[in-house]
């Protein structure tokens, strides 16, 4: 099953930022609840992406820069 491609680096970085907000003593409770919701959404998306069982896409790049299935 192919999953929607996501930018893992960006998602992990975003998650890190949100965690910093949740741990920031200067932030209010409501802001933290909102942030937690956003973090849970990213966590869910990342989990779905990483748990998806898929077969790797392997191709051969020929001299004309054409990609053909690798066998």
């Amino acid at each position: 099953m192919a999953t929607k491609p996501i930018d893992l680096a960006k998602s992990f970085a975003e998650l890190e930022k949100l965690e910093a907000v949740i741990n920031d003593a200067g932030r209010g409770f409501h802001k933290k609840v909102e942030t937690m919701q956003a973090a849970l959404a990213i966590l869910h998306e990342l989990r779905q992406h990483l748990q998806a069982k898929q077969k790797i896409q392997v191709e051969t790049l020929d001299d004309n820069l054409q990609c053909k299935p690798f066998d």
């Binding site: 898929q54 077969k55 790797i56 392997v58 051969t60 690798f70």
Partner: peptide, 27 residues
Amino acid sequence: SPTGAVIRDILKIVQKRYPAVRVLVAP
């Protein structure tokens, strides 16, 4: 080399670790 054991070994690891990646073999 597209025919050696090396590419097979690498692909096995790719499949196991991170199948989301696209692999381009330049023979």
